[in-house]
């Protein structure tokens, strides 16, 4: 019983980080129907930007975090400006292809600038390791959960409580209509990419904090694929649900299946769950049901 609660708890904490990766994909998909395959590289670039500010320049963490997010947002915006913006109004497939190209391009850039070796990564956050009876939660995953949830909440507030959020939702529904009513769709798309890049960076920093940061960390970003496919590509709530499902299935597989000799099944379990969900609900659990007038 303790083992079950333990792995559920661990799963939820890491799941919140995955949910953040999910929402980063979802807001871009909603706005332009393109899938950002370069998410892993965004994660690495964002984390390295934070690394430079925090470790190389030694800025205090409360300054380094907002500055790092801003830098990541600017990079995300610049990438959108040069690669995605010219394609406004064209097929979403071409945008998706662009992100595939970005994947390799950004990886090469990271290797050029920071090399391929690992950088040790340790945020000196207050120790909040939790020990309750037989349960034991490490400080880092708890912080990861807290930061991810807070970021997720901020994004939701931004989307549903501000005029830009309303504009984002309008553009997400139809770019042409939004433009006709004076919403600058090009600028809104830029903003979406910047927000997405900032979200990915928070997740990236949290994940790097578990161990080290290197070019190879990008692989974690691909966890976003099962997250959004399970939750539904265009559902923000689905990103949260998908993230939690992935996190929990991962840690349950680690606790109950790996001991039987299936080492590494932990990494496969999310895709297993994804397959099952897609068999039953091809649009994901919370994929949009199109509005039909009666």
């Amino acid at each position: 019983m303790t083992a079950l609660v333990q792995s559920l708890g661990t799963g939820i904490l890491i799941g919140l980080v995955y949910a953040l990766l999910g929402i980063a994909i979802v807001i871009i998909f909603k706005a332009s129907e393109a899938f950002n395959f370069a998410i892993g590289e965004f994660l690495v670039v964002g984390s390295f930007l934070f690394y430079v500010l925090f470790f190389d320049y030694g800025l205090p963490i409360l300054i380094a975090i907002p500055l790092g997010l801003l830098a990541a947002g600017i990079v995300g915006g610049l990438i959108e400006w040069f690669t995605i913006k010219p394609l406004l109004g064209r097929s979403p497939i071409s945008m998706t292809m662009i992100t595939l190209g970005l994947w390799f391009f950004m990886r090469a850039c990271v290797q050029l600038i920071w090399g391929s070796h690992s950088y040790s990564f340790f945020l000196e956050l207050p120790d909040i390791t939790l020990e309750l009876g037989g349960l034991f939660f490490l400080s880092d995953p708890i912080w990861a959960g807290i930061f991810s949830l807070a970021t997720f909440g901020l994004v939701l507030i931004f989307l549903f409580r501000t005029r830009w959020g309303l504009a984002i939702r309008a553009v997400s529904e139809d770019q042409a209509k939004a433009m006709a009513f004076g919403i600058n769709a090009r600028f809104i798309l830029l903003m979406i990419w910047a927000i997405s890049a900032a979200c990915i960076t928070v997740a990236g920093v949290m994940i790097s904090n578990f161990g080290a940061l290197s070019v190879g960390s990008a692989i974690v970003g691909l966890r976003a694929i099962p997250v959004v496919l399970i939750g539904g590509m265009d559902s923000i709530g689905g990103a949260l649900a998908g993230g939690l499902i992935i996190g929990i299935s991962e840690s349950l597989a680690g606790t109950y299946i790996e001991p039987y000799g299936l080492v590494g099944f932990k990494d496969v379990a999310p895709y297993f769950v994804m397959l099952i969900v897609l068999f039953i609900r091809p649009y994901g659990l919370f994929g949009t049901v199109r509005i039909e007038r009666v």
């Binding site: 139809d174 006709a180 009513f181 004076g182 509005i291």
Partner: peptide, 22 residues
């Protein structure tokens, strides 16, 4: 635009607000 250019998933009030974005 033709064919009733409203944002289906926003409420009517939100639609009006969105149009005043500029």
């Amino acid at each position: 635009m033709e064919d009733r250019p409203v944002f289906d998933y926003l409420t009517i009030e939100e639609n009006l607000k969105a149009a005043s974005y500029s």
